[in-house]
Lab assay of single mutants.
Amino acid sequence: VEPFVCAQCRTDFTPHWKQEKNGKILCEQCMTSNQKKALKA
Protein backbone atom coordinates (compact mmCIF):
# COMPACT_ATOMS: atom_id res chain seq x y z
CA VAL A 1 0.00 0.00 0.00
CA GLU A 2 1.37 3.40 -0.98
CA PRO A 3 1.69 5.75 1.99
CA PHE A 4 -0.25 8.98 1.78
CA VAL A 5 1.50 12.35 1.97
CA CYS A 6 -0.26 15.37 3.42
CA ALA A 7 -0.95 17.97 0.71
CA GLN A 8 -0.41 20.79 3.22
CA CYS A 9 2.55 19.87 5.45
CA ARG A 10 4.01 16.97 3.40
CA THR A 11 4.13 14.56 6.36
CA ASP A 12 3.68 10.87 5.71
CA PHE A 13 2.83 9.90 9.30
CA THR A 14 -0.47 10.54 11.07
CA PRO A 15 -2.88 8.43 13.11
CA HIS A 16 -5.69 9.24 10.67
CA TRP A 17 -5.85 10.50 7.07
CA LYS A 18 -8.64 12.76 5.85
CA GLN A 19 -9.66 13.44 2.25
CA GLU A 20 -11.10 16.82 1.38
CA LYS A 21 -13.94 17.28 -1.12
CA ASN A 22 -11.43 18.51 -3.71
CA GLY A 23 -9.48 15.24 -3.43
CA LYS A 24 -6.52 16.50 -1.39
CA ILE A 25 -5.24 14.14 1.30
CA LEU A 26 -4.54 15.86 4.62
CA CYS A 27 -3.14 14.57 7.89
CA GLU A 28 -5.26 14.79 11.02
CA GLN A 29 -3.28 17.74 12.40
CA CYS A 30 -3.71 19.90 9.27
CA MET A 31 -7.40 19.02 9.01
CA THR A 32 -7.94 20.07 12.64
CA SER A 33 -6.02 23.34 12.23
CA ASN A 34 -7.92 24.13 9.00
CA GLN A 35 -11.25 23.57 10.77
CA LYS A 36 -10.22 25.91 13.61
CA LYS A 37 -9.13 28.59 11.09
CA ALA A 38 -12.46 28.27 9.27
CA LEU A 39 -14.38 28.75 12.53
CA LYS A 40 -12.39 31.89 13.41
CA ALA A 41 -12.96 33.49 10.00
Rank of each mutant, 00 (worst) to 15 (best):
residue 1 V to M: 13
residue 1 V to D: 09
residue 2 E to S: 08
residue 2 E to T: 11
residue 4 F to Q: 09
residue 4 F to K: 06
residue 4 F to E: 06
residue 4 F to V: 11
residue 5 V to L: 13
residue 5 V to N: 12
residue 5 V to M: 09
residue 5 V to D: 01
residue 5 V to I: 06
residue 6 C to D: 00
residue 6 C to S: 00
residue 6 C to E: 00
residue 7 A to S: 15
residue 7 A to M: 05
residue 7 A to L: 05
residue 8 Q to K: 15
residue 8 Q to P: 02
residue 8 Q to W: 15
residue 9 C to N: 00
residue 9 C to M: 00
residue 10 R to Q: 15
residue 10 R to G: 15
residue 10 R to F: 15
residue 10 R to E: 13
residue 11 T to C: 13
residue 11 T to H: 14
residue 11 T to A: 08
residue 11 T to Y: 01
residue 12 D to Y: 09
residue 12 D to P: 06
residue 12 D to Q: 04
residue 12 D to N: 13
residue 12 D to V: 14
residue 13 F to Q: 01
residue 13 F to P: 11
residue 13 F to G: 06
residue 13 F to K: 01
residue 14 T to H: 08
residue 14 T to G: 02
residue 15 P to C: 11
residue 15 P to N: 01
residue 15 P to E: 07
residue 15 P to K: 13
residue 15 P to R: 05
residue 16 H to L: 03
residue 16 H to R: 08
residue 16 H to I: 08
residue 16 H to M: 07
residue 16 H to V: 10
residue 17 W to C: 12
residue 17 W to R: 11
residue 17 W to M: 13
residue 17 W to L: 11
residue 19 Q to S: 08
residue 19 Q to M: 10
residue 20 E to T: 02
residue 20 E to Y: 02
residue 20 E to I: 14
residue 21 K to V: 09
residue 21 K to E: 10
residue 22 N to P: 10
residue 22 N to V: 13
residue 22 N to M: 11
residue 22 N to Y: 13
residue 22 N to W: 12
residue 23 G to T: 10
residue 23 G to N: 14
residue 23 G to P: 09
residue 23 G to D: 14
residue 23 G to M: 14
residue 24 K to S: 04
residue 24 K to E: 13
residue 24 K to V: 06
residue 24 K to G: 09
residue 25 I to K: 09
residue 25 I to E: 06
residue 25 I to F: 06
residue 26 L to T: 02
residue 26 L to I: 09
residue 26 L to A: 01
residue 27 C to T: 00
residue 27 C to L: 00
residue 27 C to N: 00
residue 27 C to W: 00
residue 28 E to M: 05
residue 29 Q to H: 14
residue 29 Q to E: 07
residue 29 Q to T: 03
residue 29 Q to I: 05
residue 30 C to G: 01
residue 30 C to L: 00
residue 30 C to H: 01
residue 30 C to V: 01
residue 30 C to R: 00
residue 30 C to K: 01
residue 31 M to S: 08
residue 31 M to A: 08
residue 31 M to P: 00
residue 32 T to I: 09
residue 32 T to G: 06
residue 33 S to T: 09
residue 33 S to P: 09
residue 33 S to K: 04
residue 33 S to M: 11
residue 33 S to G: 09
residue 33 S to A: 08
residue 34 N to S: 03
residue 34 N to L: 02
residue 34 N to Y: 03
residue 34 N to E: 12
residue 34 N to M: 02
residue 34 N to V: 04
residue 34 N to A: 07
residue 35 Q to E: 10
residue 35 Q to T: 10
residue 35 Q to I: 02
residue 35 Q to W: 01
residue 35 Q to A: 06
residue 35 Q to M: 05
residue 35 Q to L: 02
residue 35 Q to C: 04
residue 36 K to Y: 00
residue 36 K to A: 08
residue 36 K to T: 09
residue 36 K to S: 07
residue 37 K to L: 08
residue 37 K to C: 03
residue 37 K to W: 02
residue 37 K to F: 10
residue 38 A to G: 04
residue 38 A to V: 08
residue 39 L to Q: 03
residue 39 L to P: 11
residue 39 L to V: 11
residue 39 L to D: 01
residue 39 L to M: 09
residue 40 K to Q: 04
residue 40 K to W: 02
residue 41 A to M: 03
